Computed example of a mutant assay.
Amino acid sequence: MGNLQHHAQTTLRVNGKPHTLTVDHRRVLLDLLRDDLDLTGAKKGCDHGQCGACTVLVDGRRVNSCLLFAVALDGCEVTTVEGLTGNGDGEELHPLQRAFLERDALQCGYCTPGQICSAAGVLSEAAAGHPSHVTDPAAPSGGPMPLDREEIRERLSGNLCRCGAYPRIAEAVEDVIP
C-alpha cells in the first residue's frame, strides 16, 4: 500500500512547444501552467470553475484550467493567452487582444486573459456550427452560426468580470467576427 505512485510522466504541447513533466496526479492544469511553465496569463479566481479567469484552450476547446488534472491531458495541445498569436513571442497581438485594447474592454485586467481565450473558443465554436442556448431553432444547421450581441453574451456567460466591462467585451468580440 505504501508504494502507490502519485506522479506520472505527462507530455503537453503548450503554445506549440512540447513539455514533458513529472506531474502529481492531483495537480491541476492551472497550477502547472502558472508555477511550472511560468505562463501567468490564466488567473486563479474562484478555483471552482465558476468565474472563468483560468480559461485556456485544450485541443481548441475552451476549458476551466482550475478543474482539469494535468495528467489527464497527456498528449493534448494547450493554448494560453500568451500563445494565441501563434509565434509566442508576444510581439504581434492576436486580433482579439487588439480589439480588447481598442475597445477598452478591460478595467483591472484580471479576467481579461480568460475572457480573450473564451472569446477565441466562441469564434471557433460558432464557425464550426455549434449552437448555443439562445440560437434560433429555425437557424440553418451545418454551417457557421451567426454571432449577434445576444449570442456573444450567452456564449461568454461563464466568464465573469467584477469591473463590469461586459458591453465593451461584447463589442470587442463583434469587431473580430469574420
Rank of each mutant, 00 (worst) to 15 (best):
C66I: 08
L68M: 09
G83V: 12
T79P: 04
G83A: 15
G60S: 05
F69N: 06
V71Y: 13
R62T: 03
R62N: 10
D59E: 07
S65C: 13
V58W: 08
T80D: 07
T80L: 10
V78T: 05
N64R: 14
F69E: 01
F69T: 09
D59C: 00
G83W: 13
N87P: 05
A70P: 03
G52V: 02
V56D: 08
G83M: 11
L68H: 06
A70K: 02
V71F: 07
E77H: 09
G75I: 15
N64M: 01
D59G: 07
T80H: 12
G86M: 14
A72T: 15
T79E: 10
R61H: 12
G75S: 13
R62E: 05
R62C: 04
V58F: 05
V58P: 02
L67D: 11
L67V: 07
V56G: 00
D59R: 03
G83E: 13
C76V: 08
N87V: 13
V58D: 07
S65G: 13
L73Y: 01
V56K: 08
C76G: 08
L73K: 06
T79I: 15
G52T: 04
E77S: 10
V56S: 03
G60I: 12
D59V: 00
V81W: 04
A53W: 02
N87L: 12
D74E: 11
A53V: 04
V58K: 06
V63M: 05
L67G: 11
T80C: 12
V63I: 14
T55L: 04
S65N: 07
C54W: 03
L84R: 10
C76A: 15
C54N: 04
V56A: 01
T85Y: 02
G86Y: 13
L57M: 08
G52A: 07
D59W: 06
F69C: 02
C54A: 10
R62S: 05
L73C: 06
D59Y: 06
R61F: 00
E82P: 05
V71R: 09
D74W: 10
C66D: 09
E77T: 13
T85P: 02
L73N: 00
G52E: 03
A53S: 09
N87G: 12
A70Y: 00
T79R: 09
D74P: 10
T80G: 04
G52Y: 01
T80N: 10
G52M: 02
F69A: 07
D74G: 05
C76H: 15
T80Q: 05
A53Q: 00
F69L: 14
L68W: 03
T85W: 01
C76K: 14
T55S: 11
R61I: 08
L67W: 08
T85C: 15
A53F: 01
T85D: 15
A72R: 12
L57E: 01
V56P: 00
L67C: 14
R61Y: 04
D74T: 12
T85N: 14
C66N: 09
G60C: 06
E82D: 13
L68R: 13
V78D: 04
A72H: 13
E77P: 09
G60R: 05
D59M: 03
V71L: 07
C66A: 12
C66P: 02
G83Y: 15
R61C: 07
R61V: 10
G60H: 04
N64E: 00
G60L: 03
L84I: 11
E82Q: 15
E77G: 01
A72C: 11
V63T: 09
E77Q: 15
